[in-house]
Write a protein that binds this DNA or RNA. Sequence first.
DNA 1: AATGAATGAGCCTTCATTCAT
DNA 2: GATGAATGAAGGCTCATTCAT
Lengths: 206, 206, 206, 206
Amino acid sequence: MDDTKSRLLDAAGAIFAEKGYEAASVREICQRANANIAAVNYHFGEKRQLYVAAVREAQCAQTMQLKLPRWSGELTPEQRLHQYIRLMFETMLASNRPSWHLELMLRELARPTEACEAVVEDYIRPMAEQLKAILNDLTPGLTEDDRWPIGFSIVGQVLFYYVHQPIIRLLIGQAAYETLNVEALAAHVTRFSLAAMGRPAGESSP
Amino acid sequence: MDDTKSRLLDAAGAIFAEKGYEAASVREICQRANANIAAVNYHFGEKRQLYVAAVREAQCAQTMQLKLPRWSGELTPEQRLHQYIRLMFETMLASNRPSWHLELMLRELARPTEACEAVVEDYIRPMAEQLKAILNDLTPGLTEDDRWPIGFSIVGQVLFYYVHQPIIRLLIGQAAYETLNVEALAAHVTRFSLAAMGRPAGESSP
Amino acid sequence: MDDTKSRLLDAAGAIFAEKGYEAASVREICQRANANIAAVNYHFGEKRQLYVAAVREAQCAQTMQLKLPRWSGELTPEQRLHQYIRLMFETMLASNRPSWHLELMLRELARPTEACEAVVEDYIRPMAEQLKAILNDLTPGLTEDDRWPIGFSIVGQVLFYYVHQPIIRLLIGQAAYETLNVEALAAHVTRFSLAAMGRPAGESSP
Amino acid sequence: MDDTKSRLLDAAGAIFAEKGYEAASVREICQRANANIAAVNYHFGEKRQLYVAAVREAQCAQTMQLKLPRWSGELTPEQRLHQYIRLMFETMLASNRPSWHLELMLRELARPTEACEAVVEDYIRPMAEQLKAILNDLTPGLTEDDRWPIGFSIVGQVLFYYVHQPIIRLLIGQAAYETLNVEALAAHVTRFSLAAMGRPAGESSP
DNA sequence: AATGAATGAGCCTTCATTCAT
DNA sequence: GATGAATGAAGGCTCATTCAT
């Protein structure tokens, strides 16, 4: 890929993720990308399409990174759920994330624009399928339609810690917030969800 | 309250909720409020403070509206949890809502600005206290600190349906999405959560 | 005089003198005068007329203050010139001046508006007459018309120290500037001017 | 230099000189320069910097124009002083001046802003040095510090005719004012100043 | 292929002023 | 007599975009 174009995409992603579409300015993006002010329109036509491209880029990067480890086959469904949940937390909370990818996608999913559908189809749905596969093994008696709410209940718990970080921080205090860690959160959500599905807990650690 | 000022607040709330702070323009707000362009500056000093005032207004309105029904005393904890959850869904999904109140607050909570803290303290924390009181009766053996994650798991499930509406709609299809209703969703989340806490379900309907 | 009106006049004079007509805002003036924003238009009709009134006020105050001491009769013309010059310096440089009066008038005289003519007639011309009377005695052989340039040469020297303060400060340095004092400056200008008129110096001290 | 930028500078200088910084509007400047309203921001960043640039421009133009004729060597100090004074008057009063250059600089020097220091150092000080050199020859017995006041007395006389034009016009009447000319004024100030320094006059004409 | 110059619409804010009370 | 509310014009500035090179 063209060097300038790629730098532009990277700068745009970071700034869109940080400030949102409206508050981000083409000038600022070009500046951070060390590109000419006219570069955005040259390479992407207009600001809107730069945004779409940035979301798409984020999506690709995320998708690749989020490949769940090939189940070693001998893992129990409980262990696989635990892994799945921990991976979500890791992705969301890991501070070493290059970083704007997830932020940008979640912005998009909460306030959908034209880029939303692609994200769902290319990124969200595959992940949902994986989760459904796990739930398949955990709740064999349920129909397809009955499994959606369970998946939403699980994913909702996890995303809450990401989307509503500021609430949590204010409610439990900064000190307590800092003690939160991926392992503990994943253990809690896994235990909570397995119990909700009538599964004995305690043996989910892989 | 002054008429123009109040009209301004209402228009601002609606537009801020719809488009976000940056994308909303003072001109547009004044136009919708049938007020002069200088009225914002006169009554609120600047755009930012109009936003803060609008959030505060939303909060007041919400708080009043959200008074949980006085528990009739003889309700079981399970029934009270069910009521609590249903009330959240009603508040969020009721289409007859005049409006922008909740939308604006959730925007604020996901992307906190200076108005966030007030919302948490005045609106969120009281609600959290009510939930904790219910959990107190449901999980007598737990410490205060251990109850936070449970509360978050419950609230996270509910908010998911609001914040990530577009994902759900795309994942399960528009048709299926329209069949969702407050009653069913509340029942699911309640059952899921009670089971997670090791409580026999089925008797929570008030 | 009305209290509010008088406070308004005082505040206006100070701010006009400090910032000039354009840069001064009616709001700021009313604020400093503890008056309502509508007070200016109520008392003076419009900003311009408030300015004119302030200049007039300055002029009155100056005129009263600037009354030269009645010559004791037995003073020589040289001594009277010395007194005249020293009085100008005192008026201009005295730091205890209530202070915006002169500033405002000089602004007006350098950039004349409609208020200029009145200032000249009521304030400047009487002073010029006094100076001419002195010069009359010092240069008996000259015609009226020939005495104007001499007066201008004297007054020009004095005003230079006021109008072009910043140049002087930068040219000779802040330290040297601070050693300047009314007495020394008056002595210099007097000596210089008397010599220019062919008068022996050294006996002008009153 | 760029065409638009230079037209902008010229228009700005003229308008700033005429009305002062505050009263001049960017819109008006752009209009006169046949430039877009955004051009100021593009080329100069903000109004303030356009002003500074205009002052600097004026200064350059003045400096070049004000090169004193190389003394032919055989001129007496008296003749050189006469030339110096006449040149000042010519610069100030010549009606064929393209213009706003001097006006703008004098505005700046009377109400110094951030641009003042540069004007003094680059324009005023060199001129002051030239004058000091002349005074050096005229008053050999004096110290450096004693020569400043003499220089100020000379320059003050000249500037008076520029800065306080309106006073003069009103005092001596429009008719008399129009008879004033560079030659006569320069002759007067020269004679006055030479006499003040104890120099026989009458032979200063070059 | 890429850019510096330039555009015009629109931004938020502040202005002096007026009006109803 | 005096004021708080409200007005509309204009302020400086920034925006995404276009154009000629």
